[in-house]
């Protein structure tokens, strides 16, 4: 593979820079092949996933505060509105103050896609691709792919609906999944690096041109697995956002190429 030397280089860089801040935990995700809930050209498709490493937990307010301290250009009030809209970090009391609505251990939300991407780059990582995210999120605590279990799907829906009217709760209330990753499905929506290319269509029922995500109605085409309601909600939430938008339930986590060490 052409990209392999580059990846090795990245890992080497990561190792040298990691000492600047408390290093986040990443867990190695072996590569594999899985069937995405999204149809490709109208049919279920097997997607090959290269090995990578994923943050065990979403990025927290405390971590993002460290980031904006070290990169003042991403502070509220300093960042260009082209990269972070008016709701950027709106739950924070001030540009460098978390306050009562943003506890240090809560996942950071109301971050734009640009900001999330910059954060990941700062720890020698990147945002996951949609397929990487979905591949890991297919798990439950015992199975790496539990998506065919209606009880598991219902459990996720319950958790999402159960938090109506509340900000995302603290990280780590649930056991880690079979990969060793926490809080992928229940807590918040997470940016993926390629979201804009994956879900370009605002009325997600329209089946038609190009890779547009056709969900319901005409759409039967877009979802190979129509039972993943929580996934559909997630995709709809991301679909509605432009990269500079910030929404109170949208946060992120990062991944690294290879094994991430």
């Amino acid at each position: 593979m052409i990209r392999r030397p580059a990846r090795l280089l990245l890992i080497a860089t990561a190792a040298t820079v990691a000492m600047t801040a408390a290093a986040a935990d990443y867990v190695a995700i072996p590569g594999g092949v899985f069937v995405s809930a999204l149809a490709v050209d109208g049919a279920a498709a097997r997607i090959a996933i290269e090995p990578f490493a994923m943050r065990v937990e979403p990025v927290t307010n405390a971590e993002f505060l460290d980031f904006v301290r070290m990169h003042p250009g991403w502070q509220r009030g300093q960042v260009s509105p082209l990269f972070a809209g008016p709701q950027y970090l709106s739950a924070w009391q001030g540009p460098l103050t978390l306050g009562p609505d943003a506890r240090p251990g809560q996942p950071v939300t109301s971050v734009s896609w640009f900001a999330a991407r910059a954060f990941c780059a700062s720890e020698q990582a990147r945002l996951p691709t949609w397929y990487e995210w979905e591949y890991v999120a297919a798990a439950d605590v015992t199975r790496r792919d539990a998506r065919r279990d209606p009880a598991r799907n219902q459990d996720i829906l319950d958790a999402i609906q159960g938090s109506t009217g509340e900000r995302p709760g603290a990280i780590g209330r649930h056991r880690a999944d079979a990969w060793g990753v926490r809080d992928l499905n229940r807590l918040l929506w997470e940016w993926t690096g390629d979201y804009a290319a994956m879900f370009p269509n605002a009325d997600a029922r329209v089946a038609g041109a190009g890779p547009s995500l056709a969900l319901c109605g005409g759409s039967a085409l877009a979802f190979a697995d129509k039972n993943q309601f929580a996934l559909m909600m997630r995709i709809a939430a991301l679909t509605a956002l432009k990269p500079a938008d910030a929404a109170p339930r949208v946060g992120f986590r990062c991944v690294r190429e290879g094994h991430g060490r």
Partner: peptide
Amino acid sequence: HMAHNIDLHAVMGPGGGAAASMT
């Protein structure tokens, strides 16, 4: 939690407005 939009059956246009109202 969710993004929402609106499709009005009184609309003659794509998605009944849904395409223009994903919010």
